[in-house]
């Protein structure tokens, strides 16, 4: 397993120059995905998770500047790769599944045409072979009567079916890595579980690397091997999925956990926890903890300077990292901190 990981990202930064300032939506992210591994990037809107994904795809908006020490796909460094190389890789070695299946497919073309177009962009295949491959994959992602779907337009399909089509499209060229950006956010709750199960099954079957981007910790449980929690363009916590969910170390992760109702534990009428405030606008370099304003445990040390991502010295995992000055053993904090404000108000 010590072969080069499928995805290896070091110190990835995205800057967006504005007329009066520079935005830093992504402030130096490290991310590795091994073969057959699912890594969840978790954070709320504006934390930089989607831009990170776009940066890995080479799809950043024109005005954004990307810097990194390393972006490598299966050992091939892409830091100096040209646009053409990126384009060859996209859809072939890396595929992406988007949030809103209602708008992500082109309404003007039949499902079959869109799949064939992608396949023929990357492979020398005849129309007939492309059709065969599309049928095979539509069947694999659980779409009933795939023959009929090929000749249908996206607006004739339900949201769940369209997301299955997106997944089938992602699998067309047997990529090494799939990035799924909030793949279930726009779907009905009942469909969400189906789509997640499908993604997990496919991932286990094919051994591809999966990056799952979500704001919903509930989606992550049972899906991910590792969790990367992002806040304000930084990684604030890393760890094995079960460890992070069982014992969040960073106050932000803790806050996220307290905002999820737990079946059987959360009583009816009980106030759910929430994180006060919003993600601040990412202007200028950080000179203190980025979570300071919203943290219930904040103290003088947090404002002294930028906080480093450090190894958390905890027994339950060797891979745990956190960006917080609090002791990792959980002393000095109380879970009630997250609901106290509301009840007091």
């Amino acid at each position: 397993m010590e072969a080069s990981p499928i995805l290896d990202v070091r110190n990835l930064k995205v800057d967006i120059p504005l007329t009066d300032a520079v935005l830093h939506p992504v402030r130096g992210i490290d991310l590795t995905v091994a073969r057959g591994e699912t890594v969840a990037i978790v954070g709320e809107s504006g934390c930089g998770k989607s831009l990170t994904a776009l940066a890995i795809m080479g799809l950043l908006p024109r005005n954004a500047r990307l810097t990194s020490e390393r972006i490598a796909l299966k050992g091939e460094s892409l830091t100096s790769a040209g646009r053409k190389r990126w384009r060859q890789l996209r859809g072939d070695r890396i595929a992406m599944i988007f949030q809103d299946p209602m708008t992500a497919l082109d309404p003007c073309y039949r499902i079959g045409d869109q799949m064939r177009e992608i396949l023929q962009q990357h492979r020398r295949v005849s129309n007939k072979e492309a059709r065969q491959r599309s049928l095979e994959l539509l069947g694999k992602v659980g779409i009933p009567s795939p023959e009929d779907r090929l000749s249908q337009f996206p607006h004739q399909l339900s949201g769940g079916l369209r997301q299955r089509v997106m997944i089938a499209m992602a699998l067309l060229c047997e990529p090494e890595l799939i990035i799924a950006d909030e793949p279930t956010t726009a779907l009905d709750v009942t469909i969400q579980a189906q789509i997640l199960r499908l993604l997990r099954d496919i991932q286990r079957e094919t051994g591809i690397g999966l990056v799952l981007i979500t704001h919903d910790l509930g989606v992550v449980a049972g899906m991910a091997d590792r969790i990367v929690v992002m806040y304000g363009g930084e990684v604030v916590e890393v760890g094995a999925c079960d460890d992070v969910l069982a014992r969040p170390l960073h106050p932000y992760t803790e806050g996220l956990m307290h905002s999820i109702p737990v079946p059987g534990e959360t009583r009816q009428g009980q106030t759910l926890g929430f994180i006060p405030g919003v993600v601040p606008r990412q202007v200028g370099e950080l000179t203190r903890c980025g979570f300071l304003e919203r943290c219930p445990y904040a103290h003088a040390k947090c404002g002294a300077g930028p906080i480093a991502l450090r190894d958390a010295d905890v027994s339950d995992g060797d891979d745990r990292m956190m960006r917080c000055v609090l002791p990792a053993d959980g002393s000095g904090r109380s879970p009630e901190a997250w609901v106290r404000d509301v009840e007091g108000a």
Partner: peptide
Amino acid sequence: DHVRTARAYGL
């Protein structure tokens, strides 16, 4: 979105 998809699939 669908143009972003087209780009994301290397067209």
